[in-house]
Design a protein around this nucleic acid. Structure first.
Lengths: 220, 220
DNA sequence: TATAAAAGTTAGGTATACCTAACAAATACA
DNA sequence: TGTATTTGTTAGGTATACCTAACTTTTATA
């Protein structure tokens, strides 16, 4: 049985590994920053997780999940994303409110609960942010996505996920009436600063920053 | 902000106070037994709760919730019973499975979650065991109930709640096809051992023990 | 390649929530 | 009413998860 905190370390490591699939290992400071603790605290916990064979770790080295650790991490992530979906779809939570509560709900221990919840939600493949929800067997649905910033002038695409899930960005998206499934056409790319002029559904053209375009995943 | 454990002490004290409305105070050993900890541990925590003005307590004395403590306890109980209802009604959990998971879910911190959940469930007044669900303002719906053991020969009644929520009893009830709302007619009372012969809905007459009759609440 | 900066570790300390063992107070009853 | 039993407290100890401060190793760069 893993503690609340141990679970958070595994999930953090899994999330960090997603950020750079080719180099999935993380550093101590990186972990600590992600979890909001001091590096010394992370070192302690990493030793403990190594004892439990959940991570490979050695002094001054990079950290990697073991097969077991990855499996456990995926279970937490599955729960997190199913709960987010529940809050969004059934309880009318907004895009930017679901994360905080799901952070707590993901630690509820009951295999039956997760599976029943998934069934209740009709086996969703993606959460409200467009992130894939791991299946009970650990498989993660693939999604064909590129950053909006990679879309060429004149091309149209459909929003499939958000890369930045901060409340500020999500609230901005809401203001722009952009959500998963929204159609966006790239009208012009300004090479000077990477900003672009886009058309959201059938609205007026508007300009968004490069930062914006690098925070949104779309399907061409 | 209360810790998980502090919340459990408040809920325990509230539950114990319900067991004997006229004498709602509890003892240290009683608390400890209820919570599955040693008396020494309970003493420590009670001092802490006194510091926070959640209980009235003095050395070797009985323990009572303060107005504030009661309020907080009722919030936990509200969450517990709403989650039980959710698990039972929406996720097909059985009568005897809901408690354990609700014990965890009751500690999720989000006022919005509780209220939205209540709305999603259509403002239920009673949980799957027939226990009243406190309202957001702290009011507890009243319920007109007596023990089956108090029902006289020849009288009919309807099951409104279970007093004993142990898995063993709940499973027995399930076997007998007794649930909230089931009609029971008392055919005969055996003075010798307090057992009684009852008719469940339109079934054959059957005998149940005094212990059974003292574990079930009904409405005449 | 020497050294400064960054990254990571160790040692020692805190609070929480638990424990056991020994003790003290309250109560029950002979 | 004295004493045995029950009830409750205290003191001292454990594990978890956090911290700071001092230190070491790695790395980046002048």
């Amino acid at each position: 049985m893993l503690s609340y905190t141990e679970e958070n370390y595994l999930k953090a490591l899994l999330m960090l590994s997603f950020q750079n699939e080719e180099r999935p290992e993380a550093g101590t400071n990186e972990m600590a920053a992600y979890l909001g603790v001091k590096p010394a605290t992370a070192t302690d916990m990493l030793k403990k997780l190594k004892e439990k064979e959940l991570v490979t770790y050695q002094k001054y080295g990079k950290i990697l999940l073991t097969e077991l650790g990855r499996k456990k991490g995926i279970i937490i992530l599955r729960k997190h994303r199913l709960w987010e979906t529940f809050l969004y779809e059934k309880l009318d939570f907004s895009w930017d409110e679901v994360h905080e509560v799901a952070e707590q709900l993901e630690h509820i221990q009951s295999a039956k609960l997760v599976d029943k919840l998934e069934e209740f939600l009709n086996f969703p493949e993606f959460d409200p942010h467009g992130d894939p929800i791991p299946k009970a067997n650990g498989d993660i649905p693939a999604i064909d996505k590129v950053l909006l910033a990679e879309v060429k002038t004149g091309e149209s695409c459909k929003v499939v996920a958000v890369k930045d899930t901060s409340a500020l960005f999500l609230q901005y998206l809401e203001k722009l009436k952009v959500t998963i499934g929204t159609k966006i056409k790239v009208l012009e790319v300004i090479d000077f600063d990477g900003s672009l002029s886009i058309q959201i559904e059938k609205e007026e053209a508007r300009s968004v920053s490069m930062k914006f375009a690098e925070s949104l995943f779309v399907k061409r």
